Computed example of a mutant assay.
Amino acid sequence: MRASTPTDAAKRIVPDVEVERAGIVQAATRARAALESRIASERRHLAMLRDRPVLTDPHATLAPHRTVLEQHRDRAERAVRARLDRGRHQVEALQGQLRALSPQGTLDRGYAIVMHADGRIVSDRQDVDPQEVLRVRVARGDFGVRPVTRKARS
């Protein structure tokens, strides 16, 4: 750029204060308007969000899910109870079978187990020596006995 005088050169290099002030004022005005517009937009957006049902009553959104969950829980509890009842009945039936098949159950009904002194069970009369002391086990304990021989009938 050329200038005819130093004053002219200085005017061309240094900007006019009034023009610069007007530019700054104009930029500040535009920035303020943009900021106010953004704030108004965000306020509208917040108001729209606040009016959504999920924010007015957050529990309303969960209510249908809670009902389904309660139904599933109730169904599971009933299934577990039913399975436990079936298991309890099965255990009771097995206990009954065990009592019926156990030697103690037989003894409780009045039977006895006769054993030799060494613990072998007497299963044949011919295996018993008349002088031997036998052990007899009953429901509530045991005791010793001597066999009695009978005379043959004629």
Rank of each mutant, 00 (worst) to 15 (best):
T7W: 12
H89Y: 09
P147I: 00
P58D: 01
V148W: 07
P15R: 11
T61M: 00
R86S: 13
V122F: 05
T61I: 05
R66P: 05
V133Y: 04
M1L: 07
R146Q: 05
V17C: 04
A47Y: 03
L134S: 07
D85A: 13
R140A: 10
R2C: 02
R140T: 09
R146P: 00
P130M: 08
E92F: 02
S37C: 08
R12D: 11
R73N: 09
A10G: 01
T61R: 00
L46P: 00
H65V: 13
P130R: 06
R137Y: 10
T61P: 00
A139D: 04
Q90Y: 10
I113W: 08
L49I: 04
R38F: 14
R83K: 14
R140D: 12
A63V: 07
P130L: 13
V133I: 11
H116M: 07
A34H: 11
L94G: 02
L46K: 00
A40K: 04
A28N: 07
R81C: 10
K151C: 11
T106F: 06
V17P: 02
A112M: 09
R32F: 14
R2Q: 09
G96R: 03
R21F: 15
R88A: 15
P64V: 08
A60H: 04
R150N: 12
R38L: 15
G96P: 00
E20Y: 03
E18C: 00
A100V: 04
A47D: 12
P15W: 15
R81F: 15
D124Y: 10
A139Q: 01
D118S: 05
H59N: 06
R52I: 04
G141F: 06
A152N: 09
R75K: 13
P6L: 03
D51W: 01
V136L: 10
R50Y: 08
R44Y: 10
R73W: 15
A10W: 13
R30V: 08
A10N: 05
V145K: 00
T7C: 07
R12Q: 14
R50L: 11
Q104D: 14
V17Q: 07
R135L: 15
D51L: 02
P64N: 04
L35E: 14
E77N: 05
T5D: 11
V138I: 13
E132Y: 06
E18H: 04
D8P: 03
E42W: 07
R44V: 14
V68K: 02
G144K: 04
A34M: 08
V80G: 04
R120H: 13
F143N: 01
L62T: 01
T56W: 00
T149K: 05
V133G: 02
A82N: 11
A27W: 06
L84A: 12
L55M: 03
R88E: 13
T5C: 08
H59M: 08
L69D: 09
T29P: 00
R52C: 01
R86A: 15
L69Q: 06
A22T: 08
A139S: 09
A112I: 08
H65I: 12
T67W: 10
R135P: 01
V91G: 03
D16M: 03
